[in-house]
Nucleic acid binder design. Structure first.
Lengths: 249, 249
DNA sequence: TCCTCACGTTGCATATAACGCAACGGCTAT
DNA sequence: ATAGCCGTTGCGTTATATGCAACGTGAGGA
């Protein structure tokens, strides 16, 4: 492909591990120092690298700019697409993608079950906050005071025998979700369906969306559903990486 | 310098404005599409760009990685984090962290306002030197001759009625900032926003960064803004201590 | 103060690798 | 079924990236 470009990008990658001198960098890409210098000059003119002192080069400020622009550009929906489609293909169950936008939880994508079943969700629809797994995931990421405010304003309509009906119980549930890293809707929304959901994270670790898997109870009992947790969490993780999240260690 | 690298970096910059097709990109760097493709392939192999669908390219995930690594090396950011976060939580206003590098002032961190408001800043962006409080703080710490040089090269674009438009006025302002220990942007950048900023100092007393607080005028008048000065200065002081600065007596 | 060494920088000749061209292939829409 | 639009590939040519060797510069030691 393009040799000089390839070398230059290797240099940038190398600089990510810390500032380096001209000769160190020449060693990495195994070329003469004059060649390295010309590459660095070009990189410098685009602010990809910058000099630190006289002898060292380090990553430049263009990278911050680009990373932020890239993040804004990228919408969760497209980024999560493949991971979610895979999960749907693997399990055959309904997969939802939802995000939190000023006080509401919205379904922004859906991969239908291959099993025939009725589901009342639809892209663009609001999810009830007190009885869906995605809402629990998304709200559990809000700062404490904000969570209290929201919990207070929810209309706790009981939809099944399991529906949470008090702010106290709901806030306790959010705490559980937050520390567990996933949420469950144990037939709290519809009698015959239960769900699990997990957070998709962005570059700064913030929750940008939630994935959920919905399964009819006749197909899988509660333990069977929880058995899919590792798969769901792996999916959420893959989607997070696409959204700019970097796993630590 | 290096032509192909230069072209490739231009491509990356172009992609920052949104996904593009092969031919659009060829138009930008004015080469044959086969040439563009080879560059994109190399960029793709380093995860600098990635394909979106069949016809589009967009920025890749390597940029997030690199940007994070680069940011971590500037450790002012980490050191100042808690103090800045506290200020943001206490006041609810937008808090910025900026540093001076090679003649430019760069935003290196940002804590968003809890009030809904539009702000055009972004991490990694350059701040205009003549009309932002952070730039005034950072430039006022430069040695006298250097200040003169910089003041001479600034393009004094008038952005509001209050924008400083001459080198003389700007240098006088820097003197004021230097002796006062804080800077003000009294709607000099945007009509509806005013800011105050203060220096964060390192072990040798040098200014390593600047904190600022930005407030829409509709929420707080000028005197109200200045009322927050003690809080801002305390924040800057706390951050300075984290950066190795020792308060004398 | 001068010398030396280590490292970055520059000019130039050469070979290579980046380039444009043109033909091919897949996809979509009509 | 066909035309037109893009992306892709192989190839010959020349621009261009490269290595070399000489030069500059700054730091450290005698």
């Amino acid at each position: 492909m393009s040799q000089s470009l390839d070398r230059a990008l290797t240099l940038v990658g190398e600089l990510a591990t810390g500032p380096k001198t001209l000769e160190e960098l020449s060693g990495v890409i195994e070329v003469h120092k004059s060649t390295t210098m010309r590459l660095l000059r070009t990189l410098e003119s685009h602010r990809f690298v910058q000099r630190e002192g006289v002898h060292h080069y380090r990553l430049g400020t263009a990278l911050f700019d680009l990373a932020n622009r890239a993040l804004e550009e990228r919408d969760v929906r497209r980024s999560a697409e493949t991971a979610l489609r895979d999960l749907n293909a693997r399990t055959g169950y309904t997969v939802h993608l939802a995000s939190y936008e000023d006080g509401e939880v919205i379904y922004i994508d859906k991969y239908d079950s291959t099993h025939p079943m009725r589901m009342y969700s639809r892209i663009g629809r609001r999810a009830p906050l007190h009885c869906t797994a995605v809402a629990k995931v998304l709200l559990s990421d809000l700062p404490e005071p904000r969570r209290r405010e929201v919990a207070k304003t929810i209309d706790y309509v009981p939809l099944t025998a399991n529906t949470i009906t008090t702010p106290e119980a709901y806030l306790a549930e959010l705490d559980r979700v937050r520390s567990a890293g996933y949420a469950v809707d144990n037939a709290e929304h519809e009698d015959f369906i239960h769900c699990i959901a997990a957070p998709i994270r962005g570059a700064r670790g913030e929750t940008v969306a939630a994935v959920s898997m919905s399964v009819p109870k006749v197909l899988l009992d509660y333990d069977g559903l929880l058995g899919h947790l590792p798969d769901l969490l792996a999916t959420a993780r893959a989607a997070s990486v696409e959204c700019g999240w970097t796993p630590r260690d």
